[in-house]
Design a protein around this nucleic acid. Sequence first.
RNA 1: CGGGGCGUAGCUCAGCCUGGCUAGAGCGUCUGGUUUGGGACCAGAAGGUCGCAUGUUCGAAUCAUGUCGCCCCGACCA
Length: 578
Amino acid sequence: MRWSQTLIPTMKETPEGAEIPSHVLMLRAGMINQLMAGAYTYLPLGYRSLRKAEAIIREEMDKAGAVEVHMPAITPISLWEQTGRVEAFGDVLIKFDVRRQGKKVPMALGPTHEEIITDLVKKFVSSYRQLPLTLYQIQTKFRNEERPRFGVLRTSEFLMKDAYSFDSTVEGLNASYDKMYAAYCKIFERCGLDYLAVEAESGPIGGDASHEFMCITPNGEDTVVYDPKSKYAANVERAEIGKRNVAKSSVEPKPLTKLHTPNVGSIEAVSKFLKCKPHQMLKTLIYSADDRPIAVLIRGDHEANENKVRRAVGAKKLALADNETVEKITGAPVGFAGPVGLKVAVPIWADEDVAGMANCIIGANEGDHHYVGANLDRDFKVDHFADLRNAAEGDPSPRSDAKLEVRKTVEIGHVFKLGTKYSDAMGAKFLDDKEQQHTIIMGCYGIGVNRILASLIETKSDANGIVWPMSISPYEVIVSSVNAADAEVAAASDKLYAELQALGVDVLYDDRDQRPGVKFKDADLIGVPLRVVVGGRGLKEGNLELKWRTKEAAEMIPLAGAAEAVAKLVAAERAKYK
RNA sequence: CGGGGCGUAGCUCAGCCUGGCUAGAGCGUCUGGUUUGGGACCAGAAGGUCGCAUGUUCGAAUCAUGUCGCCCCGACCA
């Protein structure tokens, strides 16, 4: 492609509102244009990269035995009602009515396609002989994000590869899952991404039913913990904490004293008011576990993990109790709860670290009052100790003697053993070889295609712009003619461009009548891995200049046979991402 | 949905607090010329409902109220 004949609106300045590298650089490189919050047009350069990521995904899905389909983005609301996900999604689901022959037809834009695919499979699959089956599509998804942000990382419309496996046995599901897991590893490797497969929260199914594929970057919205020694990695929502050596504190117990703490309910406010550290405080959370209240004690600087609490107490549903319940149990407004002197006796659960605390600061179960010097056993009792909090930096690893590290990440893929949640709700069944009817066992597997691009830019760019891996770069080679007005230069670069095209190289030809500096800056900005400069300086010696985007120095190659030499380099580079 | 910020030329921004000449600059665009290896130079030109509405005032980009849009922090995220 000739630069002069396409649309690559590069920008020297950073547009207002763009802050993180991927957003800034995608805008500056002329890859995308914002239409409104959470919706972007992919311009020629951006769309080429997106399609390259898509192509890799498609290849690996096909290799893994998945079969491509294409489902509608518009869906009847009735499907979502069958599984109760109209409520579950809430405002995230984009709902609308369409008039047809004077009647309103309620619809929704697909935010994901479990219901649609299950409906499809229910219609056409009825025998174990037809299983296993894995179907996938690459399709635009719609989710009304409350707050779209971070450029292309969090949008209301995005491209997703979603695959769904259907099996007759749990072993079959495990095999389908493993195949997808392996395909995902291959896909992200081929995209040149440094990724981490982490154990993810899998809801009531539990076990190893879910993994997320994460890209580590400070601008990520997810948090994972990682043990460099055992390679254990998990989402904080899920992460186990290793054996904690919680020794009873040897500090001399102080008397329990009530203090007036006006208008300071939060941990932060109390620690500021009493000039103490959050880890000296004990927070008391009143939860409603299957509609029965419980108290949960967590050290002030830790975060409660509701999934852990839910599993520990053996509840199906768990949520923070409403204000009314809290006031009834503690006799105080929210923010002043404590384990000493609760008005209503409820089971008290505590995180393991609480056992090592002494002279805690706790709410006094009285508005605007706290106790200091509260001590376990003397002042209050705990019914059960368990791991109830999120893992934190420096916690012991559950798999080795190393300490856990905490990292921010972007989720680029997710594999999930669904079980029979949707097939049950929608009645997707099959007959086995004994003519017995069973519910089909499902798995679902998603990849955020746009996020592959954004994550690459987040992690691989430099001060001059994007640094693409050859597999995702919109073009493999850029030919920059320096002084395009010079007839000799123009002829030589035209020829090289034509030859590279004939050799099957994806080449962008910067034929603009621009000064060299402009062309070099733009080439760096858009991040094409290999740059070939055709200029008077080299031509005099019969040479062309080659420069890799990742390298500082350029090298000269002879003009004669240059196209073949470049094609060979491209082939070698391509091979790294196969 | 809570908190904060910003809307002036295609882009980045100044002007606003303290109302008053014809609303500015840089970049980009167009014309002509000189240039040509890391965002050139000279001369000229086009380009604006100052987000929108209402109000205050002799007079509003500037003050007030409302509204819309965008960005950031938090909550939420199958």
